[in-house]
Design a protein around this nucleic acid. Structure first.
Lengths: 147, 147
DNA sequence: CCCGGCGTTGCAACGAGTTGCAACTGCATT
DNA sequence: AATGCAGTTGCAACTCGTTGCAACGCCGGG
């Protein structure tokens, strides 16, 4: 686990097609991301990539993540504690973050389609609830508060 | 304008009641916030307060904002470009940020109550759509894309 | 009105993230 | 296989924000 997932090759090919050069650093970064399920935060990418290719500078990682997003391989989300990146192909979901206990629930986008459509109809704005986390109070904490 | 709004006095009194000491720095920070409509970002507070009380350190401003939030005078929101603070009494609203043109629309919380209740009913999580901005595409950009 | 405890401040050091720039290197071409 | 250059990299410097700590000063008690 943790290396050379099947999509890494696909991604590399796609990146080459976009005129991007495949350097060792970039290869390590892409492979690290492609073999990670869910989202990953930049500092983690930096740590893991530096373990593989000593001397990789943080700025390279940040710039590569940005590049990968432009090319359409990744997307970033704003979570309670900062920015996270995940593969674009991953199932889209919103993050429900409990402001009491910090729990992070995932809600499939399909469950929010109705709300998205309703807001678009009522306000002319087509929202994407997956880009920013949604704060609130989870069921467990609601129960505690109700006693 | 921009100084000693009527609520500054109320706030100071409340803070004293909480055992907080009123230093010149803190007084300037509180007054700056209380006389600002809408949200304000920390760096702006730092600039304005330093203009009044030379030498105030940024850490003091950050710590005071945090303190004011604990006491219940302020609240922070996560916008596309960082953190913003606003008075708690201000009308609550969600921020709709257009990912195409960057427009920032405000949607009164009352317009979202229905959605909040529906999510709570369906998923057991009571969301607060005002805490994080909501990304999406505004009406104008939707029109452009449709042609 | 002075005194002293403890809440507060400034500073220095640090971590995350961004940017400008000179040096380097994939890789297409020859 | 050698060459050239546009795409990349690492570094240094900078901004925003956080934290530990010693010095400071607000304010209640004498």
């Amino acid at each position: 686990m943790g290396s050379s997932g099947t999509d890494t090759g696909d991604a590399v090919e796609l990146l080459r097609g976009q005129g991007m050069r495949m350097t060792p650093q970039r290869l390590a970064i892409v492979d690290e991301i492609m073999s990670t399920a869910g989202y990953i935060i930049p500092t983690t990418v930096i740590d893991r990539v530096q373990a593989r290719v000593p001397g990789v500078s943080p700025s390279t990682v940040y710039r590569t993540l940005e590049r990968l997003e432009q090319v359409g391989v990744l997307t970033h989300v704003h979570l309670e504690q900062g920015t996270g990146y995940h593969r674009l192909e991953e199932v889209q979901h919103a993050h429900l973050t409990c402001s009491r206990c910090g729990a992070d629930l995932e809600l499939p986008r399909s469950s929010l389609r109705f709300l998205e459509r309703r807001i678009e109809r009522d306000h002319g704005f087509r929202p994407d609830f997956t880009h920013h986390a949604i704060a609130g109070v989870c069921a467990a904490c609601l129960d505690l508060a109700q006693q």
